[in-house]
Amino acid sequence: MTAALLEVSGVGKRFGGLQALSDVSLSVAAGEIVGLIGPNGAGKTTLFSTLVGLHRPESGSIWLGGRDLVGLKPHRIAAAGMVKTFQNVALFLDSSVLDNVLTGGLMRHSIPAARDLARRCLERVGIDSIADKLARDLSFPERARVEVARALCTEPRILLLDEAMAALNHAEMDAFMALLRQLREEGLTLVVVEHHMRAIMALCDRLVVLNFGQMIATGTPEQIARDPAVVEAYLGRSAA
């Protein structure tokens, strides 16, 4: 394995009385696709938000390519190359799809260059036909894909996808997985949160399992599928 691109160690985050993350450590190598799974409320979204700087962790460190990110604002982290998509979809609703995606490109490019880049990103995600629609008028699956295109348009080194496939049908999901593999070939590193086990198993090199804010297992998809702690977390005590 090559040196880790993202190195998270001992990260903890509280919301009032709730310990949403405790002592989470994980490392992601360049070019890997890592799956982050866990039951509802396990803290997956919170971990992503903490990684990109929307939350500040109380403890732990987050290193990206040899640089400590804790305390940096999200736009600095984006500039360093880590971007996430929003599970609940956070588009600029009164702007066109193209303008949404283009805004992601402005960090590194002029408007015309960002517009070209945005067109290419839309094409890759397969939604270039809706470029001129208003984000407000899109269906939920369309919105989720605009999220992905917008994140891609920032030209990240590592992309955190929070249930980006949630609303896709089988064919769309296969196409999307092909895209992710292709992106990885081009050097992008990916961490994906997904509830869809078939997709996760087929796509990821490695899985990390979160439960009640703690990391309970990590390993290859095959290892994880056989891990009793994981089975218990998903099915509850009675089944174990």
């Binding site: 700087g53 736009h75 600029f92």
Partner: peptide, 19 residues
């Protein structure tokens, strides 16, 4: 563009690199 992004969703704007 950045101002509009802030107006429409400030968190999302930050995350995709808007100061």
């Amino acid at each position: 563009y950045r101002l509009r992004a802030i107006k429409e969703n400030a968190d999302a704007a930050e995350v995709i690199g808007v100061d």
